[in-house]
Computed example of a mutant assay.
Amino acid sequence: MGNAFFGCCACIDQASVGVVEKWGRFERLAFPGLHLFNPLAGQWLAGVLSTRIHSLDVRIETKTKDNVFVQLLCSIQYRIVKENADDAFYELQNPREQIQAYVFDVVRALVPRMTLDELFEQKSDVAKAVLEELEKVMGGYGYNIEHILMVDIIPDPSVRKAMNEINAAQRLQLASVYKGEAEKVLLVKKAEAEAEAKFLGGVGVARQRQAITDGLRENILNFSHKVEGTSAKEVMDLILVTQYFDTLKDLGNSSKSTTVFLPHGPGHVRDIGDQIRNGMLEASSAQLNAE
């Protein structure tokens, strides 16, 4: 609903305040409602001011401490104080230009003392400084500054491109470091696994040989006790010949075996038996020395 004027009377809207003059001089404020005036006495309604919150967007171009040109978009929300509406009506002809001038002055004095990174981090401090200055100045003119928002900070396009490239390079460098650490961990774990596997393989071979030695010893002793007149050497030769022929049988039955040339004959079998016997005696001697 707007304000209505009918010569000697006026209806002031709820979100407005009127200024009443008498013979060209301020007399009083007309608050929302119906008001009567006496034109014969020089009384009339000089003007009406809105008490709603107004918004003013200011775009400021300035330079940072590290010589980067930026544009700052600042949004100022202000309103007229009802009780001081006469000051707002008579003191300022164009309040928007006045507010914009003070915003320019504060921002261009503060931002050149910051680097671009500091400006992004401390933009709330810039808004706070602008708010304090405007409240101190505009309060004397009947205006109240409600909020100041630093909406956007826009660097030069070339600067933004360079910043993105720097950020991308840093992320690639960090990714390379993480990749190298991961490869290092894999190599270390692989080496540890191979060492553990070799150790366990050695333990298994040693146990296998020990088990074979113990089995042969037990077989020789049992055979010697059961068959009278046989020596341990004869029993050992018999067992070795039996294992020799079992090995030949396994090689012949294996479908994946390749051609293997082995010396075959009684003399060669005896040589093999002597070699195995000597190895067993050496292994037993080494075990006794270790104990």
Score class of each variant (00 low, 15 high):
Glu132Cys: 09
Gly273His: 03
Asn167Gln: 09
Glu132Ser: 12
Ala85Val: 01
Ile276Lys: 01
Tyr78Ala: 15
Asp214Lys: 14
Asp274Ala: 12
His264Pro: 04
Thr62Met: 10
Val106Cys: 11
Ile80Asp: 07
Ala127Gln: 10
Val188His: 10
Arg79Ile: 14
Phe37Leu: 15
Ser75Phe: 09
Gln43Ile: 01
Ser124Val: 01
Gln210Tyr: 14
Thr64Tyr: 12
Glu83Met: 03
Lys198Asn: 15
Gln71Ala: 11
Ile76Met: 11
Phe6Met: 10
Phe37Ala: 09
Gln100Ala: 15
Arg171Ile: 12
Glu183Phe: 00
Val81Ala: 14
Arg207Thr: 00
Gly215Pro: 01
Thr62Val: 11
Gly273Glu: 06
Leu216Ser: 04
Lys190Met: 14
Met138Gln: 08
Ala193Ser: 14
Glu132Leu: 11
Phe26Pro: 01
Ala30Cys: 06
Ile80Gln: 08
Asp87Gly: 04
Lys226Tyr: 07
Glu146Leu: 04
Lys63Asn: 11
Pro39Leu: 07
Gly24Arg: 06
Ser284Phe: 07
Gln77Asn: 15
Arg108Cys: 12
Arg171Tyr: 05
Met138Gly: 02
Asn289Phe: 03
Glu291Phe: 07
Asn94Pro: 06
Tyr178Asp: 05
Gly33Met: 05
Gly140Thr: 00
Glu146Gly: 05
Leu248Val: 10
Leu172Thr: 14
Ser284His: 01
Leu172Arg: 14
Ser257Gly: 04
Phe223Met: 06
Leu186Gly: 06
Gly142Leu: 05
Ile76Ala: 13
Leu56Thr: 04
Ala127Glu: 14
His268Tyr: 13
Arg108Met: 08
Cys9Pro: 10
Ala15Glu: 11
Trp44Phe: 06
Leu45Ala: 05
His35Ile: 01
Ile99Leu: 15
Ala109Ile: 02
Leu72Asp: 07
Lys189Thr: 15
Val130Cys: 13
Leu240Val: 00
Thr230Ser: 08
Tyr78His: 13
Leu92Gln: 00
Ala182Thr: 05
Asp117Asn: 05
Glu234Ala: 03
Val241Asp: 05
Ile145Gly: 07
Val205Ile: 12
Asn84Thr: 00
Asp13Ser: 15
Asn219Trp: 01
Leu72Ala: 13
Val130Leu: 05
Leu131Lys: 11
Leu288His: 05
Leu221Trp: 02
Gln208Cys: 12
Ala4Ser: 11
Asn67Arg: 10
Pro266Phe: 04
Val151Ser: 08
Glu228Ser: 12
Asp271Arg: 04
Met150Val: 08
Phe120Asn: 08
Thr259Arg: 00
Ile220Phe: 02
Asp156Pro: 03
Ser255Cys: 02
Asp66Trp: 13
Ala30His: 01
Gly7Asp: 09
Ala232Cys: 08
Glu97Ala: 09
Ala286Glu: 11
His35Lys: 11
Asp274Gly: 02
Asp156Val: 05
Gln14Cys: 09
Asp86Val: 00
Met150Tyr: 03
Phe89Ser: 03
Leu119Glu: 09
Arg217Ile: 04
Asp152Glu: 03
Gly252Met: 13
Pro95Phe: 12
Gln208Leu: 15
Asp271Asn: 04
Gly267Asp: 06
His268Leu: 00
Lys233Val: 07
Leu34Phe: 14
Gln275Tyr: 10
Glu234Leu: 03
Ile60Gly: 09
Leu119Ser: 08
Ile80Trp: 13
Phe5Asp: 06
